[in-house]
Design a protein around this nucleic acid. Structure first.
Lengths: 130, 130
DNA sequence: TTGACAGTTGAACGGTTGTTCAATTATAAT
DNA sequence: ATTATAATTGAACAACCGTTCAACTGTCAA
């Protein structure tokens, strides 16, 4: 009678214990209950976005590309890094859709995919400066 | 005659080679020269700030504390983590001045140190949502 | 076709990071 | 005083991350 139910349904029956990692009990259960955590997935996406911005090389790349489109060699010279290291980071920025690439002849020119990134950088800079 | 000069001065004399990591030459030296990289230290501070925000646990802690001050046990139950793990992350948030602690009796209550963090979170959420 | 160069790729290395675990401090209650 | 619990701490561990290195692809010029 219980064997065709989903995990969710079994949880409702208290047949399956949801594994809990906590090693303590709540001090103020009433407060916890009022906390809104439904946007949790968006929060994790948000953390993912911050994680990409949380690297000196990538921030410098974005800052440079905000001023002009550039190819890998130019960026490598500007940041005093190897082509390979720059290319690896550009790949990360591109997979996060923060940067786009365009091949012209022997070179690949990179630029910001939209000016949203620019405003985020500027806002955060203001936040730091105060 | 040269032995009492600073590194900077020696560099001007071309006595010391500034070690370069690049493995290539610039394609467009004119473009590189126009790029403004003087705010580089602020950019790195910025990356440091993003790095702290780039963790799911920390973002969830901030999101929860934005709604109510809470002690470690409550946060551990809410996020389904051990007290220890929560405490470690709170320490990081506190050393970044994003969160402040206040001991009351047996408990330590944490809250956002200012509402600046809240606005940053909201702005970034808007950025994600579009 | 050959050589030179721009760029990419994957493996490997070293450093960093988040969680766990065990031990410890501090406060309150019995 | 003793016990129980909240919280912190440092060491240890595994997973992750950025750079390096070497090999490779693709394009242009001779």
């Amino acid at each position: 009678m219980l064997q065709n139910l989903t995990i969710e349904q079994l949880l409702n029956y208290n047949v399956v214990m949801k594994p809990s990692k906590t090693d303590c009990y709540a001090i103020n259960p009433d407060i916890i209950q009022k906390i809104e955590m439904s946007d949790i997935d968006k929060l994790l996406d948000l953390a993912e976005f911050f994680k990409i911005m949380g690297d000196g090389t990538r921030v410098r790349l974005l800052w440079a590309l905000e001023q002009a489109e550039m190819c890998v060699n130019d960026l490598a010279v500007l940041l005093d890094m190897t082509k390979s290291a720059v290319s690896h980071q550009l790949k990360i920025l591109r997979s996060a859709k923060l940067v786009k690439a365009e091949k012209r002849g022997k070179n690949v020119y990179y630029s910001l995919s939209d000016n949203h990134v620019k405003t985020v950088l500027e806002m955060a800079l203001e936040h730091i400066n105060e």
